[in-house]
Structures are given as structure tokens and as C-alpha cells.
Design a protein around this nucleic acid. Structure first.
Lengths: 108, 108
DNA sequence: GCCACTATTGCGCATTGCGCAGTAGTGTGC
DNA sequence: GCACACTACTGCGCAATGCGCAATAGTGGC
């Protein structure tokens, strides 16, 4: 199974969860997701997700100059984003319970 | 969040898990998945998945006449399918752990 | 000056689930 | 006998989304 396909529909949730902890810019979010265990996320996917969530009105955005490179475009959750995170987390949990139940006969 | 997108990449696993329990034909697999909680799976998705898995060599297939309607094309796991199920289940479990960990700060 | 690292954007592709239409067999009610 | 519902499968085209790759650009070390 390709973990790429597993990410579909979950990357939004993962990005929201990371941003809930603390605001972040694209490059940083990629790093934090990889540290969390999603080692194979492509940077383009994350940037795309951030732009999509922003366009959907779930994120705030502000640019900050950096001492160690180009400017950084920070993103943070607003109310829409927080409630999206909550409802998506619910959907995920229920979905993952269904799957784990389906797999209960499959040995680890 | 759309549960449709969550299914991406997981439907294969769900179908394999259902078939591991017992052989089944398309219509039947749809029913069993819906009973398991995946209420929104489209029938076309399941038929497509079965064909894809069969083409990939993970399933056996045999046609059985039926008393209550058209013939039924049964599918069952072969060795390839079983090992695909095992490895996919592993991937899923590790992935779902990562997500649950990311979401540990998000209240239920 | 060249290279590595940081940081973002845009383009086109591949995968895959879905809606919908079509085909077809069986049994029920009128 | 005919419309209808349920069973059962196939094919077509669409939409969403993650990815690879190239391009652009700033900073600092050698």
C-alpha cells in the first residue's frame, strides 16, 4: 500500500493539527509533519494544502522577514479553521475506528 | 471534511479485510462495508476496486449462478492478496497512530 | 563565485472514488 | 402482461488531491 494515497483527505487535518499547536510557515510545517512521522510528505503538497485552506477561509496569513533566508509566510488558525479541525478530527476518529474494527481479525 | 477523500487508499484495505473474512461478490461486499460503518461507499468504487485488485493479481474470481437474480462474480483472496492485506494493515496502523498522536491535543 | 540551505510558487501528471447511464435477471402486485 | 423493485455488473467521464520537477530568490560558508 502506498502511504501517498493514505494522505489523501488527511493532509488537511494533519496541517490543521500542526497549526493548532502554533503558527507556522510552509517549510516549517513540512518539517514538523516529517518529525511527527509523516516522513514522505512532499513539500509541494503542504504548500498546496496551506494555500487551499487559506483560500477556504480557514487560515490567517502574515509575512515575516527572516534573518536566515527569504521571508516567511506564516499561517495560523482562525475560528473557521479551529472548527474545521474539530469536525475533521471527529470524522477521522470515527473513520479510523471503523477501519480498526474491520481489521481486528488481521494479525499485527 | 469529506469522508470520500478519507477512503482514498483505504478502500483497497477495507475490501481486502472483508474478503479475508469470507469470499464475496461485488454487491455483497458493498453491503458488508456499509454494515461495517462505511455507509457512503459508492457501489462503482467497490466494483472498481475489486477489478483493480483482481488485475493486480491479489484476488481469485469465479462465477456462480444465483436463484435470486443475475449471476454473481465471487472474489476471494489468494496468497498475494493475503500478504497485501497484511502489509497494508501494518501501513494503516502505523499511519493511524501518527495521526492520532498529532490529534492528541484536539479535544474529542 | 559556487554551493548548500532556506522558502515559496506554478505546472502538469497519476491515482482513485463517485455519479450516472446502460444492461440484465428475478419476483411482486395490479 | 406489465410496471416496478431489487439484485448484479460494466463503462465513461469528472473532481479532488498528493507529487515530481523546475523556477525564483535570499543568506552564509568555503
Amino acid at each position: 500500500m502506498d502511504s501517498t494515497q493514505l494522505l489523501k483527505g488527511v493532509l488537511d487535518l494533519a496541517v490543521l493539527a500542526v497549526l493548532a499547536e502554533r503558527d507556522g510557515y510552509g517549510y516549517d510545517v513540512v518539517r514538523r509533519l516529517r518529525e511527527a512521522g509523516l516522513e514522505d510528505v512532499g513539500d509541494a503538497s503542504v504548500y498546496g494544502t496551506l494555500r487551499r485552506l487559506f483560500r477556504a477561509g480557514a487560515l490567517t496569513s502574515y509575512v515575516v522577514a527572516s534573518d536566515e533566508g527569504p521571508h516567511r509566510k506564516y499561517y495560523g488558525l482562525n475560528d473557521v479553521g479551529r472548527s474545521l479541525l474539530d469536525s475533521s478530527a471527529k470524522t477521522w476518529r470515527s473513520f479510523s475506528n471503523i477501519m480498526n474494527d474491520l481489521l481486528k481479525e488481521v494479525p499485527s
